[in-house]
């Protein structure tokens, strides 16, 4: 227990140090801009302190946008997980389905999902919350589907055979063998999906503006601030997105260490 505590402490320290290093680099770059560029141009890159100073004055506004973005992202990720993981596991595990559907998956997977944006708009309502979440699902779904499919397809056959020999039914095999065996790969897919998902929310929130709304999201906030030349606010928004990503990444890590603890022994 104490060793686990020390482990968490070490990792937190490592994260804190790299955040500090990143802020330092940012400050240096900002100074460099101010030294070498025309002052009007140099405003494009304010220092981290200037960006941080936005928070005390506007924390309520930024907080609401953060809530909006986080909610869209989490709902989108959750829907994708619920749809893609079971489907991917079944396709990967059942040889007939695998042969039938894999070509379809691998032709759809590489298509940049932005091209379906107009269709989503029409189907789910222009600028609606549903269309934004739908876009996140569209982007993330295939990543998770491919991760789950590949993991299930590559599971050593002996695991399945000995569980079948032990009398487990074909449905029980999913719960006791295929899902836990594929879970580490699903988590890797989820981490990739987090980056993709944040990108998708950002696109969705900036794509259509229908008046200033309280929970319009950080994408909208950043975009508006750009329009008003409030570059400190732009970077405050970027900071908030970074924090959101870091927090969710940490959450995924904790979840994986708990659900796949057999992978993290000693």
């Amino acid at each position: 227990m104490r060793r686990a505590g020390r482990e968490v402490g070490k990792r937190t320290l490592a994260y804190a140090l790299s955040v500090l290093a990143l802020l330092g680099l940012w400050q240096l770059l900002s100074w460099l801009f101010q030294l070498t560029l025309d002052p009007r141009m140099a405003r494009v890159l304010p220092g981290p302190l200037e960006a941080l100073m936005v928070f005390p004055a506007h924390w309520r506004e930024i907080g609401n946008h953060l809530l909006g973005t986080a909610a869209r992202l989490l709902v989108g990720l959750a829907i994708s997980l619920l749809l893609a993981v079971p489907l991917g596991l079944v396709i990967g595990h059942e040889p007939a389905l695998r042969r039938l559907l894999s070509p379809f998956i691998y032709t759809t997977y590489p298509i940049p999902k932005v091209v379906f944006w107009p269709i989503l708009f029409v189907l789910l309502g222009v600028g609606s919350e549903l269309s934004k979440i739908g876009f996140v699902v569209l982007v993330v779904f295939f990543q998770l589907l491919v991760s789950a499919r590949d993991a299930a397809a590559n599971l050593p056959r002996d695991y399945v055979l000995s569980a079948l020999a032990a009398g487990l039914s074909r449905v029980q095999i999913y719960w006791h063998v295929v899902l836990p065996g594929a879970l580490p790969a699903v988590f890797t897919g989820l981490r990739i999906s987090l980056g993709l998902g944040i990108f998708a929310v950002y696109i969705a929130e900036t794509a259509v503006r229908l008046g200033a709304r309280r929970y319009a999201g950080l994408g909208s906030y950043i975009n508006d601030s750009f329009g008003l030349f409030r570059f400190e606010s732009v970077f405050a928004g970027i900071l908030a997105i970074g924090l959101l990503g870091l927090a969710l990444y940490g959450l995924i890590e904790l979840l994986e260490r708990w659900l796949c603890r057999w992978k993290y022994l000693r």
Partner: peptide, 27 residues
């Protein structure tokens, strides 16, 4: 598969994500 017939495979007979107890009582 029948309950009166047991099969032990070479390396991967045990499920790595199950404890000794869970493996011994599987099914």
């Amino acid at each position: 598969p029948r309950p009166d017939v047991a099969l032990i495979l070479q390396e991967t007979g045990l499920l790595p994500w199950k404890t000794v107890w869970q493996n011994a009582t599987l099914g």
